[in-house]
Design a protein around this nucleic acid. Structure first.
Lengths: 117, 117
DNA sequence: TCGACGGCTGAACAACTGTTCAGTTATTGT
DNA sequence: ACAATAACTGAACAGTTGTTCAGCCGTCGA
């Protein structure tokens, strides 16, 4: 690594060291990246946006994004393991909702910034 | 599509229609997804976090994330085209900074939510 | 208890992402 | 004008992501 060039010449070492110290540690950065990764797909954004309004079952969500129930189920598993949604079983049906308001907040922030391009 | 199952039985059509109407339109959703996609990588998060503190040149940034200048340059291009960073040329050097405070804000939000897991 | 149905899962495949490598452009000092 | 250096770029490759397909699990009604 770092073999490409300018090992000694142009790097402002002290400044880099300083900035480096202020960086959040590895697990926190990766955790944040994981959350953003979940938000990095239009279909998942649709699902999450829908869940900001209503609790919905898998079939509803599949109809909403116009794909197979299987595909949605896979997506929901990702969102579940990332703690962005939680679910509730009622008979045969499983109803999903957002895990907390942070999710809705982040989503809204992203949409706002995308709008004022 | 939608061939998998439950075409008629369990879908709550009116509710789906209602939620569907409230969804942001395609380009907005994709725009937001693009932004989140840029934030979905630990190294890019490091770069952006560093730039919240200091204006830095490509070499500095490469040293910071401990990769080649080429790799960083590719990443910076992505961030540039997504309008998350802007740059300034000074002689041979190119200095990068965040395009606006929204970026810093989103970044901070993501880190905060990752922290309070 | 059995069949139907809502939902979940693993494997496989195509599409996308990030890095490396090699080569190019732009600017500076000699 | 030439060599050196900071940065950019396209092609290629490995690793990851999202969908499909086929089959499984859990619950309900007959």
């Amino acid at each position: 690594m770092e073999k490409d060039l300018c090992q000694i010449s142009c790097v402002n070492r002290p400044l880099v060291e300083q900035v480096l110290k202020a960086l959040p540690d590895e697990p926190l950065l990766c955790g944040a990246a994981e959350i953003f990764k979940m938000l990095a797909d239009p279909n998942r954004l649709r699902l999450l946006h829908a869940l900001t309004q209503e609790e919905l079952c898998v079939c509803d969500l599949a109809a909403l994004v116009d794909t197979s129930a299987s595909a949605v189920s896979h997506q929901l598993r990702l969102l579940r393991t990332a703690r962005l949604v939680k679910y509730r079983r009622e008979g045969k049906m499983v109803y999903y909702q957002l895990d907390d308001e942070h999710v809705a907040h982040l989503l809204q922030e992203g949409l706002r910034h995308a709008a004022e391009d």
